[in-house]
Design a protein around this nucleic acid. Structure first.
Lengths: 131, 131, 131, 131
DNA sequence: GTGGTCTAGACCACC
DNA sequence: GTGGTCTAGACCACA
């Protein structure tokens, strides 16, 4: 389910954090649900367990998950406390960035809108292909 | 004109490279136009000259600019050779990322579209505010 | 194994690049073989790690090696793709330069040939001396 | 007559120095012959007069030329004093470098010799083409 | 431990 | 003044 892009400039642990925040917000992960074990996730993503551990540690510090020593990590009861603003900021930032890029390349608002809708359409078709 | 975000995960030199590629594509920088001197730009951006030099060196290796020793750096004659695909890839990537984020947060295509148009509107008003 | 001449006009990082290209071409370095670590090679050559890093970064941009973050640098699978022409150009250039020098000093083709063979003989004896 | 390669790592003033040493050795420039004026040569080579001045200054310090203030630069009477060893070292160095390159690329002595003769032949034909 | 980025500051070739 | 190379050493992400 979770994917990471090792060629991205964004650190892998940040990508992992973001993925879990999304799953929690969507409700795919509910309070007290267990997260995959550090070793399993590291194996699945072909990365070092330390990197997953770093992501989990951050998520715990931010209050999204809690850790039972010797058992594993679980979604916190109040995990959705900050989710609305988290969601908003993550979405706003990425959309605003895309708009900024397009403006800096000299595209008009109409062109930007058309391009976005084109990509949105392509993305929806992508779903059918099982992505 | 150019801005960099030192808190971003994207390296400063990559941000500088992208900015100049946009200016060249828009035509704000034409073939044989001089780029700001390394020291001047470093002073303006409050960063180290080596960081600007790294960006300029990369741009030269990628064929966008050329260097006259002791004189300065200039936009290459064939600087727009790869610009179409560069522009496309940069725009596609940022737009697709925004769409991916929204989908992963569980938004429907209609919600994504509405949110995008809302941000696009906000961005256009931003221009009036003198950004 | 690798040597650099810090008094040469040729930048150290260029000398390092050339050495690795030769090793790859000769087959002493095969695809997926690891290169020496940046710090180790810098220590061995008595130069700054940044200088080695510059050479490795260039080799990566030119497609001869690839980098695994936190692991090291490795010879690329298609590292020999451009090697034939690289080798040819490097060899042609140095031989042609030697011939040009000799001609400009007024030597006849016969004298040039004799001098070259004399040096080649001296070089072969040099091997026996354990160079 | 004189050529410089601005893309070479060898400084332009070093290339100019070497060219004049060759001309003196060949006898194309004899004691008390005038050198081209700094401005003329700079114009001809499309470089900055300071660069030519640097080359002339070095040649004077090394005893190959002398300067008459307000008149120009002239070949020194004892200009050939060091020429034999200069010539030898310049030729040895470039030939030995070419041989070293070839050896490092894994060529056998026979291959090196054949390649050298091939290039020497090509070079002689080049003369006919008016190079 | 690895490589990547960035800083601060030196020296050099060239304009 | 310009850019290019190199050094010394910092911090970070990753294994």
């Amino acid at each position: 389910m979770i994917k990471v892009d090792t060629s991205s400039f964004v650190p892998i642990y940040e990508q992992i954090k973001k993925e879990f925040k999304k799953e929690i917000f969507r409700g795919d992960l509910k309070p007290n649900d267990p997260l995959p074990s550090i070793r399993d996730l590291a194996t699945e993503l072909l990365i070092n367990p330390n990197t997953v551990a770093r992501a989990y540690r951050d998520l715990e510090m931010e209050g999204f998950i809690y850790t039972k020593k010797g058992k594993g990590c679980y979604v916190a009861d109040d995990s959705t406390r900050f989710m609305a603003e988290e969601r908003k900021s993550i979405l706003m930032i990425s959309i605003d960035e895309a708009i900024e890029e397009a403006k800096k390349f000299g595209l008009s608002p109409e062109e930007i809108k058309r391009l976005f809708e084109e990509r949105l359409g392509a993305s929806l078709k992508g779903i059918d292909k099982g992505e």
